[in-house]
Structures are given as structure tokens and as C-alpha cells.
Design a protein around this nucleic acid. Structure first.
Lengths: 338, 338
DNA sequence: CTGAAAGCGCTTACAG
DNA sequence: CTGAAAGCGCTTACAG
């Protein structure tokens, strides 16, 4: 075992076994055409030295690495779900997974992180990559699958049916009797944000309820962005009886703001989020929201990437997964239906 | 941009800019001694081609990579917490993070995964590694920090104060009036499992309550391992009034078994876990457990690794973080105190 | 200020 | 069955 210094290399093994590195390589990779006695010698040298081939050197030399990459800009609780799905899809597949995250999240390098990481990994370290929620379009010579793509993205992707999810939310609120329904939008460059807003508008239109631009606020998915917007909406003389936000993080903020303003949820205000993050089940009252299975997004993305890498590119390359309304305590009939 | 095929290399940039790769390398790495006009030419070639240096090639050539590694065998919800802590400790540090997970989790390669992955990463791709819950001792030429080490491990590590945590649990149960307290142990090769059992024994001894070997069951942290053991404990004529398990996963199983047997919790049986995973707050009744901040374990491990890599190895290398009892609905006074 | 050359640890035709 | 040699994409002394 290399205890203190440099790691054990193939040359170390070759020297000890009295053969060339080419032969060691053949043994390590179980190629045919090595005599049994040589194999035994090399094996015991490997054992003795505790040799393990360098991932880096192997990747550089080979075109195929059997490693898939995943690039993300943060680790939220949903990221863990995505990773679980990815790993389950990769079990026994022969592909290992490398996740790359950079530390300058809030630094100058932030913009375009996905493209940069992708380029550094793809083609050498990895055979292909999954990119989670990129801020823009991504390009790569190697196969790529995007989870939650940017708007107008054309690369292979997996995403939840945000349009349908948002539609169901609004229908739920309309059925309860709400007519003034506020909306706090997400970062508009993301397809998800756009579709959720579209669902909001269409569902209102379909019900013959006019869309009041004054009830639409421009958030960016960041919980903090929602606080002033919620305050503004709720300070209006004709304040909404319900607020639907483009994600749960912002919805939880709305709950806080409502409490600060002395409004009871759901008595004075109904609140609905999107995503069904674990916290939404823990708050009091529980948050009504839309479940998109991050696990399945990860699972399907990994499956798609695997087949792209293997060259069998049959099947659709833009998968849309169903969503599901989860009704909890934060929604009810409005006190004074208008 | 390399649209279809091979990625853009440094030679491509060199050719376009009419210089050598050595010069391109100098520009990319902002070394002194390149004329402004050459810099401009190279920069525009890089821009035009969308060149990004290959992580693999750079790692192979350089001794220092400014990338830290993390090796884990699965993605549980606690893994996400660890990762958050690690990332926060690394923010703006100049170190990127690579997480390596292999797909043969349940295959022949399972045993010794941590050592193999470590050897493949350390020394070439990464400057040092964090290993999460290894099954045995790990060795590496490069710096390593272990989260939740194996028993008798001597490498730098970060772990929760499992002994104190388990002690407090037993004291809590004793204070409620329990005297027959069952224990379902974890995988004994892990230091955490051993300490939790030790805490259980010591706290009973300290209170003058004899330890009944018949009340100690040998689980392995896997929820499934707990079901038959719980059944056995609860089938006894002199069944325990409380069961303490070495982790939450097993405790949740005990709750299920109790329900199957028609035992009410906490009326007929008190149950306590360890870890405070999110699910323990969601079950009904809520699970009394011990919180170990996985976030902090990750944070401290990353801090320690960073300083080891940078060569300032002052400070302790075996950090033990405090734990905290979280009392929820699954514990109460025994119906018939003995 | 710039380039030719060696080499990081491997793998793979090509000889023998 | 085995080895010498080239080369994957970079970086870094060493010349000039």
C-alpha cells in the first residue's frame, strides 16, 4: 500500500512482476493471450502493492470510459431524489457515476457553469452527462440529457408536465370558489417556470376568469424573491384570496408573510406551491402542491443517457412525466367568495 | 463548438491562433511572459472554438488539481445533507468537488468499494478525499477524511457523539419509568454501531438496571434486518416496554411490526431511533430519536480535508460532534411500569 | 516572448 | 505469448 507518498502505478507492478506495463494492462483488463503463469505473477504483484488503475490515465487513453457524469449547481433535498433515481437506473449497468460540483457557486464563474463543467468532463472523463436545471442551452460533443431544460432547449431532456400540473392547481382553486388568484412566477429562462405560468393563464382563461396582470408577480424561484412580492400582493385593496407560486420554496415564504400580516391560512388566504419538497409536508398547515417525482426524472434521464451512449437512440428524446396534485391544509374555500 | 464529434483540444486552439500548445497553455493558466497581442489572439481562438481544458489531461499532468473527492456507496436523504455541508465548506475555496459512486452496489465489487474508488481517484484526479461510512479501514497516499469511520479506525475522521446520544436516549426511557428496554444493534464493524450499543449498556449499568442479553438483537442498520428481530423481541412473554434501535430506518420498521402485532405506540410500546432522518418526523406518531447533524459532519470533514491538503495539519484529526435528543410522540410512560 | 520536447499513467496496434 | 513504441491532452523545464 502506498502509505505516504505517490500512488502505486502500473510501472511499479510491472517492475515487481518482471514484465512490461503492456502485459500488466492486459491482465488488469482481462485480455486474452496472456499465459496463466504470467497472470498469476502479475496478480500477486497487484495484490501485494494494492495497485488500482488510475481513473484519469485510463480515461485519457481510452475513448470509452464507462463513466457517466452529472453536473449540478447545488445540493437541495430534491437533488438527493434525482441522484437516487439516477443510481437505480445505473445499477448493474456497468456505468459508474461522477457528479461534479464547483465551489464558486456565487462567484464570477457562476454564469454558464453547466456548459463549462460539461466541456471539462465530456469526451474525456465521461461518456455522457446529465445536466440538472441549466440556466441556458447546453452543447457538447458527447451525449447529454437535461433535467428541467431551459426554454426553447432542443437537447434530449426529461421534464415534468408543468403545464398540466399548474392547470390542475388553478382548477382546484377555482372549484373551491376562488376567483382572485395571485401568481408568483419563477425564473423565466427556465422552461418549467414558463409552463407553470402558462398553465395558470390557460386554466383561468378556460374558466372564463380574466387574467389580472396586477396579480402576477415576477419571482425567480428563490424563496427570498417571494417575500416582497407576496407583501405587495397582499397589501392590495382587492387582494387575492389565493396565491399560487411557481415552486414550494416561494410558497413557504408566502406562508411566513401571511402569518406576519396576521392572515390565517387557509381561512384568509389559500396557498399552493409546486414540487412537493419534503418541507411542504412538515409546515403547519401542510402545503397544497404539485408532486413531480424527482426520483423518476433522475431515473428516466439516466436511462435515456445510457441508451444514447450505447448508440441505440430509439425512443423519444423529450420525455414529459406526469404530475400529481397533493392537497393539504393550505387550501380551502375563500371566506368571502367574490 | 464541437457539435457532433470530438471535443475541442488545445491543439485546435493552437492551430487556429497560429501558436504552440505551450503558449495556449500559458494563456489558459494566466502565466506571465506572453505578449498582449498573443494573449488576444489565443483568447479569441478559445472563444471562437468554445475551448475548455480537459479535466482529465490537466489532472494527469499536474500534481495539484484543486479538486476534492467524495466517495459514497449510496444516496440516502442524509447524503444530501452531508453534501450540502461539504459544499458550503468549499464555497469560494478554490476546490471543486467530485463525487464518485459505482453502479455495482449489489454486485461482486461491493466489498471494499471505498478503498477501490479512493485509489482510482486519489493522487491523480483529486488532491484528497472524504469517504462516507466505509465498511473498513481506508488507506491512501493522499489525504483522506472519513465520516463515520469503521471501528478502530485511525485515519482523520468526523463522527457524531454516538455514545452520549445513546446514553441520553436510555436516560430518557428510564426517566419515563421503563426498565425493560430492548436494543436492536447496527452493523458491528462500524464505530457508530458499537458506540451506540456501548451507550445503551453503560446507561443501564449506571442506573443499576441489569443488562438482559435476551433484549439485545443483532441488526445491521438495514431496515429489513429489524423486522424479524422486533417480532422476536415482542413475542417474548416478558417483552420489553420500549425498543431502542441503532438507527431510524430500523426504528420505523419496529413501528410497522408493532402495528402488525396490534401494539399501540407509545401506549403499549415506546420506540426510539437514531439519526433524525426526515421520515422520522413524518410518521404517526413522530419518532423520538437522536439528531446528528449530517450537515455539520459534512462541513467539518470538508474543512479538515481542506487543511490537510493545504498542509496545515494543526487542530484535532478526530472530531466528535455533539448530538441532541429529539422527543416526539413515540415515547411515553409504560402502561404497566415494572 | 515563444516553441520543441519530455512525460503524467495508461492502452493498443504492431512486431516478433 | 510478450514487449517497444506511439499517443490520449495537457504542463513545464529547457533552449533560444
Amino acid at each position: 500500500m502506498a502509505e505516504g507518498a505517490a500512488p502505486v502505478t502500473m510501472s511499479d507492478v510491472a517492475r515487481l512482476a518482471g514484465v512490461s506495463t503492456a502485459t500488466v494492462s492486459r491482465v488488469v483488463n482481462e485480455r486474452y493471450g496472456v499465459s496463466p503463469s504470467t497472470i498469476a505473477q502479475v496478480r500477486s504483484a497487484i495484490e501485494l502493492l494494492g495497485y488500482e488503475s488510475s481513473l484519469v490515465a485510463t480515461s485519457l487513453r481510452r475513448s470509452r470510459t464507462n463513466v457517466l457524469g452529472l453536473v449540478t449547481h447545488s445540493f437541495q433535498s430534491y437533488t438527493a431524489e434525482v441522484l437516487k433515481g439516477v443510481m437505480d437506473a445505473l445499477t448493474q449497468s456497468g456505468f459508474d457515476l461522477i457528479i461534479y460540483a464547483n465551489s464558486d457557486l456565487y462567484g464570477t464563474y457562476s454564469e454558464g457553469w453547466e456548459q463549462r463543467h460539461l466541456a471539462r468532463l465530456a469526451g474525456t472523463l465521461t461518456d455522457g452527462c446529465i445536466v440538472v436545471t441549466p440556466s441556458g442551452e447546453v452543447r457538447s460533443g458527447a451525449p447529454v440529457v437535461v433535467i428541467d431544460p431551459a426554454r426553447d432547449s432542443t437537447v434530449p431532456s426529461v421534464t415534468a408536465d408543468n403545464l398540466a400540473g399548474a392547470t390542475v392547481v388553478v382548477e382546484h382553486l377555482l372549484n373551491l370558489g376562488h376567483r382572485r388568484i395571485g401568481f408568483i412566477a419563477g425564473r423565466s429562462s427556465l422552461a418549467a417556470a414558463w409552463s407553470r405560468e402558462e398553465g395558470y393563464r390557460k386554466a383561468l382563461a378556460a374558466a372564463g376568469v380574466p387574467v389580472d396582470p396586477g396579480l402576477i408577480a415576477r419571482g425567480d424561484f428563490n424563496p427570498e424573491s417571494a417575500a416582497p412580492l407576496a407583501r405587495e400582493l397582499l397589501d392590495r385593496a382587492d387582494r387575492p384570496t389565493a396565491i399560487f407560486t411557481a415552486n414550494d420554496g416561494m410558497a413557504l415564504k408566502v406562508l411566513e408573510v401571511a402569518k406576519d400580516l396576521g392572515l390565517r391560512v387557509p381561512g384568509d388566504l389559500s396557498v399552493v406551491g409546486f414540487d412537493n419538497i419534503p418541507e411542504s409536508a412538515l409546515v403547519e398547515p401542510g402545503l397544497t402542491t404539485v408532486d413531480q417525482s424527482m426520483y423518476r426524472l433522475g431515473y428516466e434521464a439516466a436511462r435515456m443517457l445510457k441508451s444514447l451512449v450505447c448508440g441505440d437512440s430509439e425512443g423519444p428524446h423529450q420525455i414529459v412525466l406526469p404530475t400529481r396534485l397533493v392537497v393539504r391544509g393550505s387550501t380551502a374555500e375563500p371566506r368571502n367568495p367574490m
